[in-house]
Design a protein around this nucleic acid. Structure first.
Lengths: 318, 318
DNA sequence: CTGAAAGCGCTTACAG
DNA sequence: CTGAAAGCGCTTACAG
């Protein structure tokens, strides 16, 4: 340890550097240490510090593949909340994969203070030797979730109000539990509103390209089945429907109304602008981070589910 | 170390776990160790391992705020290349900030094998005790860059060919060097093609919302100045122009043609679809990761600049 | 082929 | 108020 060139012991330096010098180290000595630290550009070694301490100042956030811009919002919320107290590091899964137990295990090695897992594969048992908080993981323990019901009900009421009696559903291939919930809630709401959901099965990876391909292959089936509106499980999927419809001369919303989930920033500039159930990503990130911090402080805070609502735009209203 | 319940020494376990047992540990013993490891769910402690070894198996990628979906592509390229050999961890800056020296310093503590820095603030001296490769950092040492010239020239030729004689430019507020280069190249290409660039100054943060606001406030000035086409420094900025134009009844491309940089996936579904200089993000990530791996292997590979090209769509062609 | 031992750079009781 | 010492869990010469 170079900084004992301040003429003091290693232990004293450690105390000062970690701000534990209150009433343990005299002011002039602490000052000398700080000066030496500055001069030498010293920075405490994370590995050694974690080892000695038992755990470090890292918070890791494991998120699905970022091709869905929704996660950028979530990350921003986490980052703003975790702040300076911890160092946030991110990990993303491979394209189309959801975070799973193996990912948590791999990051446990880093001895983080805690782990955040966004949209994990359902049915995984995400326990670790450090606190874990899940995001958007309906049914999971220690999860912070959206309350999707109001948004979905608004959406169905909106479509029913516009006269749609039969809707198609473009699902994601994702194994995240939230997608199962979206589908179910939509079916429930439709039943209650006396709207039929077409049995035509369509599902795609969460990218515009993949969705456009699936939508192109499914458009005819939907129309033949009498579908007048398609709900996609995510905005990126809905973009694919928009693209496929444009390519095939299907008028939106004239022949087919389209809606999604997420309300991404770009959903206001699509052709036409997209109706979507807004899922405030940054809020989710903030809430989860807050919950993790509370757990670390020993003040386990229950976090209520986050509200969702419908944002109606031209892709349904014309 | 629990796993010496295999009836062997700690050292032997370490050798086996790290795959260094070839010709050092007998097969039956190695097998016994592996069995014990499996049973106990043992996983080597990263902090201790890094400490003893001097450096770990982490590769860190420091990227700007992810609200620009472009970076998701870059990350994917890096992830696919860095692969299993290293563990990729990401760090993102605060909204609107570029990676800087302080970020590199902070991650040095983790003793990564190497650090990748995407679109750093220009003028930063990003040296570290571990290899650093920069991405999209014109002028930086050890940088992997785009060759923007061909794309920009195609863009200007495209606009000139459509009869535009005076274009506006919506710049980003980002301090990343790539934005300075985009602006300069556009001016150069315009001069060569006898196209004027309007002196009307407009710059916005790289989000659709911010850009829409700036564009709304600038539209009149552009039109009064005789501008018939606007080039935005990034697609997200161009989306803002599209939104502002739609809100103000400015026809695109009739009254104003619009183009961007990046060619994001959603640029094919905007209203109208956006003309853009395509910057293949995943390729950039792959090239930079390859270069870092080569450096780590001692085989410093020079990586040529990545090609760019124009993708013309309805926002200019009508 | 295997094990005992030193050492990686810190932190934290503990003695002084 | 300060310092000497043990120990965090590994890896790697080194001796056997």
């Amino acid at each position: 340890m170079v900084a004992d060139r301040a003429g003091t012991s290693i232990a004293t330096v450690s105390l000062v550097v970690n701000g534990k010098d209150r009433g343990r180290v005299s002011a002039p000595i602490a000052e000398r240490v700080r000066a030496a630290v500055d001069e030498l550009g010293y920075v405490v070694d994370h590995a050694a510090s974690s080892l000695a301490r038992g755990s470090g100042d890292l918070v890791v956030l494991i998120a699905p593949d970022l091709s869905n811009p929704f996660f950028a919002e979530v990350i921003r919320g986490v980052r703003d909340t975790v702040g300076d107290r911890f160092q946030l590091v991110l990990s993303v899964t491979e394209r189309g994969q959801q975070p799973a137990t193996a990912d948590v295990r791999r990051f446990e090695r880093l001895r983080p203070a805690g782990i955040l897992v966004d949209a994990p594969a359902s049915g995984e048992d995400l326990v670790a030797s450090v606190p874990v908080v899940q995001l958007d993981a309906p049914g999971g323990p220690d999860a912070v979730n959206y309350d999707l019901s109001p948004g979905v009900q608004e959406l169905v009421a909106h479509l029913a109000g516009l006269g749609h009696r039969r809707i198609g559903y473009l699902d994601g291939t994702s194994r995240a539990a939230t997608f199962a919930v979206r589908r179910e809630l939509l079916h429930d709401a439709a039943r209650a509103a006396d709207v039929a959901v077409s049995p035509v099965d369509a599902r795609a990876d969460l990218t515009v390209d993949a969705a456009a391909q699936v939508a192109a292959a499914t458009l005819d089936a939907w129309l033949e089945d009498g579908v007048t509106a398609v709900v996609a499980a995510a905005d990126t999927l809905a973009y694919g429907v928009l693209r496929a419809a444009a390519a095939n001369g299907v008028a939106i919303p004239g022949q087919l109304a389209v809606a999604g989930f997420d309300d991404l920033p770009s959903s206001s500039v699509t052709a036409p602008a997209l109706t979507s159930v807004a899922l405030p990503g940054a809020d989710l990130g903030r809430a989860a981070a807050l919950r993790l911090l509370a757990t670390l402080d020993g003040t386990a805070a229950e976090v209520p589910a986050l509200p969702t609502r419908l944002v109606a735009r031209a892709s349904t209203t014309g």
